[in-house]
Amino acid sequence: MNATATDTHEQHDSHAPGLSDATAIKIALILAAMTALEVSTYYVDFGAFFMPVLMVLMVVKFFTVVSYFMHLKFEHQMFKLLFYTGLGLALFVYFVALATFKFFS
């Protein structure tokens, strides 16, 4: 127990190195490209793919920022638990509430 404890302690007492600046810029470029693709749906008719494309891009952008810019991917499980519990509960209660208004049908 003591060994584990010390281990945990050392891991987190100091600061994360963070993303390298180069990686951060690459990710930002990818995000920019995805935004451009999103905006293009305004000019080009995507037909049946319109909604799925926008939804997928939105979700991918969301988790890219959370995982890399907010660094959550590399953080302790505890932080993931705290944030994703909030996110998960929000999705659950609001989807159910909107469903009772027959929003999705």
């Binding site: 945990t8 302690h9 050392e10 891991q11 987190h12 007492d13 302790h76 505890m78 932080f79 705290l82 944030f83 994703y84 519990t85 909030g86 996110l87 509960l89 929000a90 209660v93």
Partner: peptide
Amino acid sequence: STGLSNNKMAMWLFLGSECL
């Protein structure tokens, strides 16, 4: 106790709350 920073834990909790 967890080796995690109080401040960061509080911030993540706050952001989880902001999701709702």
